[in-house]
Design a protein around this nucleic acid. Sequence first.
DNA 1: ATTGACTGGTAATCTGCGTTACCGTATCAA
DNA 2: TTGATACGGTAACGCAGATTACCAGTCAAT
Lengths: 209, 209
Amino acid sequence: MSQAVKSRRADQDARRTAILDAAAEVFFEQGYAAASIDAVIERIGGSKRNIYSMFGSKEGLFIALVTENARRLFDPLVNEGTVHKDLRETLTDFAIRLLHLFMSRRMAGVYRVVVSEAARLPDLAASFYRNGPDLAASWVADILAQACARGEIQVDDPKLAAQRFMGILRGNLYMEIVLDLSRPMDSAEIDNTARSAVDLFLNGVKTKS
Amino acid sequence: MSQAVKSRRADQDARRTAILDAAAEVFFEQGYAAASIDAVIERIGGSKRNIYSMFGSKEGLFIALVTENARRLFDPLVNEGTVHKDLRETLTDFAIRLLHLFMSRRMAGVYRVVVSEAARLPDLAASFYRNGPDLAASWVADILAQACARGEIQVDDPKLAAQRFMGILRGNLYMEIVLDLSRPMDSAEIDNTARSAVDLFLNGVKTKS
DNA sequence: ATTGACTGGTAATCTGCGTTACCGTATCAA
DNA sequence: TTGATACGGTAACGCAGATTACCAGTCAAT
């Protein structure tokens, strides 16, 4: 019996992730309002009934979609952030991973829909920001505060400095990606960009000597 | 007769700007898809017929709306950019004006709808970017290239440096504004932010001495 | 003053889509 | 095996909103 129950639950989970995958394609491609439940169902077969019993409504599906994708995208960034002995190395490492994240199609998709629905779903926007970019900035701010305490750099406000570091990394390129005007960088370009961005930042905050 | 024609044209123009103003409220508030022509008309009275004869379609109205707003927003930024003798002063000046722009409700509104419709209207997204952020970056890049030629700073790629300068200015704050999570900065905060951002950037690119 | 063209308003049309009602079928306990 | 329960599918419902047809008032020129 537990066998049967288990396999049924497994089916449910598989179905759920299939729906979310299909929904990602549709919603991230076309935006919330233009996306239709029918379009989601077309990609995986089955019935709309299914979506409504699992997610309650179009909005419910959307919120689940954004929440899970945001978590999956940002979790590794912060949790797998390794702190090296050398500040430059730590920041470069982070920069590379942040740029990879920003260059991913999935990230651009999530960002686009969160932006466009922010007015209607403020809680979703807030949770995206706090569990994503803001969390990452806090992680960097910690690193910077420690380096500051060691006298390696001089920053008045570590959080602000961290946000500016992330700003250097994004530059205008992230806007180009979000607007779909530019091909994402490949790994080699990301490495170079990360390195020179860290150079600029560390020069900027270095203690005078 | 030319008198009469003129006043009729003036009426047309007044009507047109009234429509665009009302459309700005509706579209920037609710997004393209959720916005309705009816909602636009409700704010100024009159008839939908009006909008269709002037703009052809909902999409035509939207494109006119975005184009005109983008132009109005970015034109002063670049055209009134004054180049002082001192690089720091020039950049600080620019920074203050860019931050004021980014803090404006109107700018956030335009950016939100451009992002959310970028996939469906790629030309609109491209023209927004090229006549806006990219143009501004080019202006800064020029300034930087000149300073570099004078030996005041050391940058390999002035355009990239300019984009990074703009990135420092935005930090994460612009995302907070776009997601409606944060109150825009007031003038005093903008001044301070601009100054410390310019400090960071100029330290970062200063020629070693 | 009259005619003719045009601007603007009301109200219908038509489509697309979120949501739900209803029905067949498969699963599981007894 | 059988009855009950719940799941999935089909097809309809209802609504919202873009677009348009048609009508009335208005202004200019003769």
